[in-house]
Design a binder for these strands. Structure first.
Lengths: 206, 206
DNA sequence: AAGATACTTGCTATCGACAAGTAAGTATAT
DNA sequence: ATATACTTACTTGTCGATAGCAAGTATCTT
């Protein structure tokens, strides 16, 4: 988490290192104290630098947070792509659900940080709105594509509106993650996931 | 929104009036600039008082926001009770969904403000966590009750887990509201609602 | 050695919340 | 009835802490 202070590095390496440290520090501090109470001073120190580096590198605190969203959502997107591989239709949707379920268990801090940033995008005047909206629009479009493909192949109920199902699928995931964050004990994360898969199959079945 | 300056009021009336003005101002400012950027100064002025009154009356800014959550969620709860009336099972669940759908259209500012406050409850160390968690636990329990009653009367699929369905139902609602706030154009609020009702019936059918 | 890039420090306006103050309403004694 | 003591409603002074800019220093590159 703290910058390495050994052997001389190239400028590019220095930059890459400090970027990495700052993004890690951001995730950690967002989860520990929330974005607003995460001060530039704390971010700099947690990353092993000064309070000024965040603003210099990312333009502002919000700029750093945007970078966090991009990094985590990109990593998640890659995992989904890998899990879905070539499959479409119901299988693809189930694989995506499964991937998210596991991602939350494996990287709870990343998910917590990202969800907190998603939330802040819903506040008026937030500079994260556009990025976050793009991330979610993309996710919904991807799900809708799988469903549409399944409909063309006859495996999925043709009466269903692919876009609306996709929104429902993604909205559920967001809401459930919110509950999980609020009080992980009050929600049966695993059972909810299993029941959700059953519900998906039921909803999509031709 | 601004305190009345006419005829002398009793202490109780003065208090009720200023409380009302402050709660209204809070909703307005949360929707206009978000909770963090809503300053005590702005709250006081918008309500027609000084910057000190919020702290004096509600203890802190967060105290005022708690009161906002209580007020709006209570009002929504009453509307649900009225709409559901005596019905149970699928009808009760559909009536609750319908009530929320309409509440959002009729009082978008109240919903926006409340959802923003819900979000802030998911941040670490938030003093709203407990209140918000209680509100949502209660909503889920209520939905689960309707479902369980429907199962006892044989109208709802007995294999379903009532609590898990309730969580799914409420999580969807939260997530969809988030999308609606993020970009109301990208979401077909009405179609999503209609499809949701069909999906509920399908999921609950015996 | 000179320029470019990575990073730090000085500064200003603004914030929330506490403490101390003032104004307005209420109770009691004559 | 009205003056005085008291309580409650509300305001203002103050303090430490904040984000982000401008101007500086350290480190790498050519």
């Amino acid at each position: 988490m703290v910058a390495n202070t050994e052997a001389p590095l190239t400028q590019a390496e220095r930059k890459a290192l400090s970027d990495q440290c700052m993004l890690d520090a951001a995730v950690r501090l967002i989860v520990e104290r929330g974005p607003e109470k995460t001060t530039l001073k704390a971010l700099g120190e947690a990353a092993g630098y000064s309070r000024g580096l965040v603003t210099y590198r990312f333009g502002s605190k919000a700029g750093l947070f945007k970078a966090v969203i991009k990094r985590v959502s990109e990593r998640f997107g890659q995992e989904v792509d890998a899990a879905v591989a070539g499959s479409t239709g119901i299988d693809a949707v189930l694989a995506a659900a499964e991937t998210y379920y596991r991602f939350v268990l494996r990287s709870p801090k990343d998910i917590r940080a990202m969800q907190i940033l998603f939330h802040s995008a819903a506040e008026p005047g937030s500079s994260l709105t556009e990025v976050v909206n793009r991330v979610h629009a993309r996710q919904r479009a991807q799900v809708a594509e799988w469903v549409a493909a399944g409909q063309r192949s006859g495996a999925i109920n043709p009466k269903l509106c692919a876009a609306t199902f996709a929104a429902r699928f993604c909205a559920y995931t967001l809401g459930m993650t919110f509950y999980w964050m609020l009080d992980s004990r009050s929600i049966q994360w695993e059972q909810a996931h299993q029941d959700f898969k059953v519900s998906i199959q039921q909803q999509l079945a031709a």
